[in-house]
Amino acid sequence: MSIDPDTLIDLDGVAFGHGRTLLFDGVDLRIKRGQVVAVIGSSGVGKTTLLRLIGGQITAKAGSVRVAGVSVGRLDRKGLYALRRRMGMLFQQGALFTDLSVFDNVAFPYRENTDLPESMIRTLVLLKLETVGLRGAASVMPSQLSGGMARRVALARAIALDPMLMMYDEPFTGLDPISLGMVGRLIRRINDAFGMTSIIVTHDLNESLLIADRVILLADRRVYADMTPAELRTATDPFVRQFVDGAFEGPVPFHQPAPPLAEDLFDRAAHRH
């Protein structure tokens, strides 16, 4: 059904939620091949959920999620795994296998998904590690790596099979400014060098403004704003402004919706006798 061959990801009226509360209700999103898209939004708005929907780890309640023209929710296990071989995902803390060395971590996708001889795997792994600048750390165990290095090793592992789509879940969290800039630059460089498409879920607006082609603001269970970094800087919408300026007061409330405090306290007390 996908008409435009340039569109890699196509979310159409996607709804998702646990139980009765909906996290998403009518999310529409199109991402073109070759773009780096940053997804921002308040904590708990469902940024990671968006990635899990695209990766097929969860299924939408309504609407369709299509990657490269394939509807993810309709795939069987085999089709899903075939699709995932062409996707890479970088998890929040890297999710390196702690019982395997850096080398074996990066070799893992090759050993599991290909029949390549060990000598060729070795070459490929060292090349990927070179890409992230950590060829020298091949024999190190993940526990001995710093946060930034672990993130880069995980990146090398995620791009091992040269995916068409890379998804990054909070790649900048917990990194010092130097590592942060390094990872950011790396994401952009890898995207362009290997002709990928990237989605970055992040809190870090500054870094995403530097490297992204488009910024998507999730709020109110849908895509609230979809603009280029330049547009975002000059946006006038109060909600967007609050995000860009990081202001405390604004449309995003500090409090979760709740009944008046006195009523709540009295009510609780009445229950417990």
Binding site: S101, F103, D104, E118, S119, R122, A138, S139
Partner: peptide, 8 residues
Amino acid sequence: MDVQGLTV
């Protein structure tokens, strides 16, 4: 060296 280390 890693590969060999692994086999050992």
